[in-house]
Amino acid sequence: MKFDITVITSNWPLLARGLGVTISFCSVSSVLGLCLGLVVALARLSRSAWLRGPAVGFVEIIRDTPFLVQTFVIFFVLPAFGVGISATTAGIIALTLYGGAYFSESIRGAILSVPRGQIDAARAAGMSHALAMRRIVFPQMMAYLIPPLTNQLIGLIKDSSVLSIITVPELTMATQTVLGTTFAPVEAFSAAALLYWALTACLAALMGRLEHHTPTQRAARQTAAFLAAADW
């Protein structure tokens, strides 16, 4: 068979728009999901069982059901109870809940990775719990958080293709539209795969830069430079 590049070039605007929708949906849901994840993680670490219980329940429900089913529930079940909801809103909500559940576990793990003594020292100096979190725990947890978070953000981008089922015009949906007019699945899906890869690769590179600039990494670099320059 012959790979017809014009299938991609002539439909480029459609695919580009789909990529744009995927980027916007994932950006908005990542930011909202990170906020949600932080709240859920702190609730789960709280001393109050009234906060811990719902947090555990939320994570379990989201983690233990397929994302496709969650999307359907939000898109079709809510309207059945008279809550009108657009595909866009349903898509953002679904992605945010899904991302938030996974992010919360990474954030919880990162917080727990900060050595206990670091927090003891903060509390002994009179810092409130909130101040110790903000000044000591959060800056230090970044080094533990970024690697798993990178995985999950990439997962979020890939799983956002599910939203094509509820007619969100993102990249996978756009690819199917191209397919409908050109009947060229090889070209259309190759283009989609390539665009997803480019997007996730950019994200991974960005997260790598971010990791490079965490306070922990900065301290480690300066120490390494110091040891290399030391006169033994």
Binding site: Q118, D120, R123, A124, G126, Q140
Partner: peptide, 16 residues
């Protein structure tokens, strides 16, 4: 707590 200083066995300086 702020009126009582504490020094730990493992120093616990903030590493970042």
């Amino acid at each position: 707590r702020a009126r009582v200083g504490m020094v730990f066995q493992s120093f616990n300086l903030w590493t970042h």
